[in-house]
Computed example of a mutant assay.
Amino acid sequence: MTVATSGPAGPADRAPFPASGRRVLVTGAARGLGRALALAFAGQGDRVAVHYGSREARARETLAALPGAGHVLAGGDLSDPGSAAAVAEAAAAGLGGIDVLVNNAAVNTPHPPLSTPYEDWVAAWQAHVSVNLLGTAYLSHRAAAVMARSGHGGRIVNIGSRGAFRGEPDHPAYGATKAAVHALGQSLAVALAPRGIAVASVAPGFFATERVAGRLSGAQGEAIRAQSPFGRVAGPEEIAEAVLWLASPAAEWASGTVLDLNGASYLRT
Rank of each mutant, 00 (worst) to 15 (best):
T2G: 11
V3R: 15
S6W: 06
R14Y: 03
F17L: 08
F17K: 04
S20M: 06
G21E: 12
R23F: 06
L25E: 09
V26H: 05
G28N: 09
R31K: 06
G34T: 14
G43V: 13
V48K: 07
Y52I: 00
R55K: 13
A57I: 10
A59W: 06
E61S: 05
A64R: 12
A65C: 04
A69G: 02
H71F: 08
D80M: 15
P81N: 15
P81G: 13
G82W: 15
A85L: 11
V87K: 02
A92N: 00
G94N: 05
L95R: 07
G96F: 11
G96Y: 05
G96W: 04
L101S: 00
L101F: 04
A105H: 10
A105E: 08
P117G: 04
W121E: 06
A124W: 03
A124R: 03
A124C: 08
W125V: 12
H128W: 04
V129K: 07
V129E: 11
S130P: 06
S130F: 15
R142F: 15
A143Y: 01
A144K: 07
A145W: 05
V146I: 03
I156T: 08
N158V: 07
G160S: 09
S161F: 02
R166M: 12
R166P: 01
A173Q: 07
Y174W: 01
A176M: 06
A180H: 04
V181N: 04
V181S: 09
S187D: 07
A193G: 05
A193F: 00
P194R: 01
A198R: 06
V199W: 15
A200C: 04
A200W: 08
S201Q: 01
S201L: 02
P204R: 13
P204I: 09
F206K: 13
T209M: 09
T209V: 15
R211F: 01
R211S: 13
V212L: 10
A213D: 14
S217T: 14
G231I: 11
G231M: 05
R232Q: 12
A234I: 10
G235S: 13
E238R: 04
I239D: 01
A242C: 09
L244V: 01
A247K: 08
S248E: 05
S248I: 03
A251L: 07
L259P: 00
A264F: 13
S265P: 02
Y266F: 11
Y266C: 01
Y266V: 07
